[in-house]
Write a protein that binds this DNA or RNA. Sequence first.
DNA 1: TATTGTTATACTCTATAACTATA
DNA 2: TATAGTTATAGAGTATAACAATA
Lengths: 149, 149
Amino acid sequence: MQITPEECAREMLEVVPLVMRTIRAEMRGAREPSLTVPQFRALLYLNRHEMASLSDVAAFIGLGLPAASTLVDGLVSRELVVREHDREDRRRITLQVPAAGREAYQTAHRAAEACLAERMASLGEDEQAIVVQALGILRPAFGAGRQKE
Amino acid sequence: MQITPEECAREMLEVVPLVMRTIRAEMRGAREPSLTVPQFRALLYLNRHEMASLSDVAAFIGLGLPAASTLVDGLVSRELVVREHDREDRRRITLQVPAAGREAYQTAHRAAEACLAERMASLGEDEQAIVVQALGILRPAFGAGRQKE
DNA sequence: TATTGTTATACTCTATAACTATA
DNA sequence: TATAGTTATAGAGTATAACAATA
């Protein structure tokens, strides 16, 4: 079978939204505090990067600043994120994740992971290996703008 | 390296939204008529299934009937989909894709495919093969409820 | 002036609940 | 009564344009 980049692309266009649908449904359906996928991704990033700015988060999630600002608003009002002005440069915002935010993230992560793992469990171990390998290949190809992640 | 379903799941949780972000940005950014991902997926399904009902589309995209109804509304008002009552059972809706809808779908498909293919092109052919293989494995595991697709 | 965010506005997405029309 | 959709309502996602604050 002759492999082309276009064939790769066609398959992705079919399968990726399918997987995404499952992830989204699982997160939304979770017990409180339930997270949307963008909220989950924001918390993921903030858990890994102390004192990140709003721009950092926006770049990681792939949003403009206004959209990111709104998104963070929602997390702040639920007290899952703390927003402060940077002391050095008061234009910048520093975002931090308090305990409640960390727990919300971990709960969502566990639920989504369990849901996906359940489907993966019916595959053979060799198939699982191929999936992991492929994701390892795709990750750098779709990295968030190739900056710090 | 020991592979587990959980490891698969964790990787998916990281990488799938990354790819999705690219797909979404490409479709939204396309020239008119630009499509959102759910709209694109609805047209994809309708292009493959003549006389599909609203429920069919909802199941495929993974939406409830109200959400699907609204989604189709948008496509109907842009004349990318034609909505009619079924003659046999007037409760059912039959959806069809006129030429304009088919073109919108194909345009969006080509744009997204080209965008993804561009990123795939920098991979080796063996890597592309692994990606295609993995997607072939994932597709049935996340098929739309295992009904007709 | 350039940079970082926010606010305003406008759609779309998506869910639940209540309703309509048909069978 | 049960089924297929629609409408109402509401909160979140996301974009562009206009604005505010800081450097």
